[in-house]
Design a protein around this nucleic acid. Sequence first.
DNA 1: AGCACGCCGACT
DNA 2: GTCGGCGTGCTC
Length: 872
Amino acid sequence: MILVKGVLSNGLVVGDMSEANFKEQSMYSEKYAKVIVKNNSIYTDNLFTYKIPEFLLEDVQVGHRVLVPFGRGNKPIEAYVFFITNKVEDNMDFKELFDTLDEHPIFKEEDINLIHWIKNRYLCTYMDCISLLHPKGYKVDSFKEISLSQDMENLDADSLYMKIDSLSKSRQFIINKIIENKNKIKLERLIKEKAIEENINPKDLRLSSTLNNLLLKMKEENLIDIHWNYKSQKNEKKICYISLSMDHDLIDEYVSYNKIRLGDKQRDIIEFLRYNEEIEINDLIKLLKASKSSITSLQNKNLVVFNIKDYYRSPKGCYDENKKEIILNEEQKKAVDKVTSEMFDENKKPYMIHGVTGSGKTEVYMEIIDYALKQGLDSIFLVPEISLTPQTISRLKNRFGDIVGVFHSRLSEGEKHDVFKAIKNGKIRILIGARSALFAPFNSLGVIIIDEFHESAYKSEKNPKFSAIEVGKYMALKRNITLVLGSATPSVEEYYRAKNNEYNLIAIKERANKRPLPKIELVDMKNELTLGNKGMFSYDLQNEIKEALDKNNQVILFLNRRGYGNFVSCRKCGYVFSCKNCDISLTYHKHQNIGRCHYCGYEEIIPKTCPECGSDYVKPFGIGTEKVEEEIKRIFENAKVLRMDKDTTSKKGELDNILNKFKNKEANVLIGTQMLSKGLDFKDVTLVGILSADMMLNFPDFKSFETTFQLITQVSGRAGRSDKEGKVVLQTYDTDHYVIRRALNYDFEGFYEDEIKVRKIFNYAPFNNMISVVVSGKSEKLVVNNIKSMYNSLTYLLKERGIEDFDFILGPSPCAISKINQNYRYQLLFKDDNIEINLLKGIIKYICITKKEIVFDKDVNISIDVNPNNIL
DNA sequence: AGCACGCCGACT
DNA sequence: GTCGGCGTGCTC
């Protein structure tokens, strides 16, 4: 932790700005900085203008982090310079900014442009965008400090004591505390001391209010000064290395000449350092069982020196991948050639690689990255969920070594900071990460690869609710970066754009192992019922599992629901156990005999008898992965089962553990949810069972057909990836659905043609943009009133612009999940049918952001999502 | 949001 | 006339 003292470079004490800030206009040419202040209120989320003081004219640049006085009290807070100008509105007074906070700007011009673009595209605040590009490792801590006034300090000791004696008790207390603390005390500290004195809770707001009033009086009485001070922190990990301060031959002489006495431990340390040039201090302590004190005393005797270096922790993956020599096939080579040959073209389009599962897309990406690297260009490799792709990470690390960095939102702020720093220093040249890795501060970014780009994880769920695909496209366009999207099952929207020449479409039709895709066998579950099979496994699937296990092969079973049963109810009265905080039925987890809400995490023990009617017909309904596991263990004696879902992989390392076990064949059946679909590659998997395609198909969302097709295709692709032929059993009640029909033959083109027609008819993406505004709050009445008033303001403004037809607005209506975490949720949905998207966005922005406090109550939350993933 | 200021009732 | 609690409005 580095602390920068609150003394400004012009020698001014922060807070003491009475004269300095409002100087008469002088000779130097004036410049002003427009800044965004770091404040999480949307009311302050606009550009503020500050005059750049003369002594900083040369230094302040666009993108600098600066310290500015803000508000009536001129509290110093962090701000970011967005642009610099010499033209400002007349008749306005501007404060001067205090100082810069870093030597160099943290944002480049292009970053500022990106922030503007994201803000406008997704209707979020500047600060939302800034926190994406700038890890929170830096912060400015502002605090008030109390000291004696100049008058008081000028008094000699006797007069001072007399003066203090004449004051009231509470004043004396404060003056004494200031003197005790070397004439400087933090307000916070003073409050604490006062609380101890009066034996009350320091968090009591009345105390601080009273104290503040008293302090203000004392300031008026010219007893004390109150001013702001600050500390600037950088969350950088540093490592301390220790070495001898002189050549090891000279040590003994130095010790005896200066008559230095050394303890045994200290001697050990010196002996050790004689033969080891430099060692990390903590290692030394461990190795020699030494204590910190012996080291500091050596330092005090000037025998050793510390060398503090930046620390960069490179996270190690636990999943081990064997190195293997890869030779690209014709199709792969073609893809690589196409992309690399155009890398320096000015007007290149983004690339979309549509390659079947197992077509070796990762190898293609690596070749592209390798080429870029040789041209001096850095690469970003996005994956949907970093924790699910240990295989990809280890492949990249194996090939490129230490220059590969990993970045995702689960890193600590410190770790994020380290990674960003290593990127700036050029230590990391290739970054693999989740969508947030897109904003890494590379010096010469040349390639962005987005793998499995159809995944919904590329759309952020929290502000800014950006889509990594869209941002990637924007960056590629603005900075001439090579953008490569890859998937076996492209999203319908992007594929439509590819068909319309927005992308270079590259198809890889053959699997890398030259084997055909595994055959998908369709099982009609309606028939199973007539045959008397009420279980979750059809006879066909049971036979296939048995055969695979007997042949010592592995099986993957896919079911898109975790837990044991999807709800618990009483057969007699129909009572359904549901979450106390949300409008959701509880999922049954048999292992702990609890019902759990998958939205807020609420849990309750499921009783044997119904709490409504008292009958004992309480039973879980539907199936989840937990029940599948139980059934498999019951039916197949030789099954060694692993389960992979959110319940079994929530802890760090558990996923690696499961994958490693399955890879080492400690288990032969892997049951899981959609996690399974993401790039797993096991050579002995010959059978994939999809237990219920209907569960996904019937999901109430316009993308559910697309998602179902993608999941079937992706999960099927896990089979037969090596020399052994694979097979897939697909169970469904809806055998005639076009999604199922197309998926059977891996007919993506056919599916796309079917689906795009539906999209066209109902005006869904890609033919339309959709904006969802959700108003939520603890009081349902308040939420309803608020969303109604929003609707009224909206229609009023639209009518003013001559729009009378409001068919493009859906709602206001309760959300599909009408309550989450005690918050009632109502929604307005907009499609840009008969209205220009920018006009619509402008009006929504005006109502929900600019005039928020007029339209909405402060007790409700407003969430705006442009082209949301789902509209629950 | 977070801060300063000003108003108003309670208490000396 | 002070003290202290709370509501209000602004932030370059």
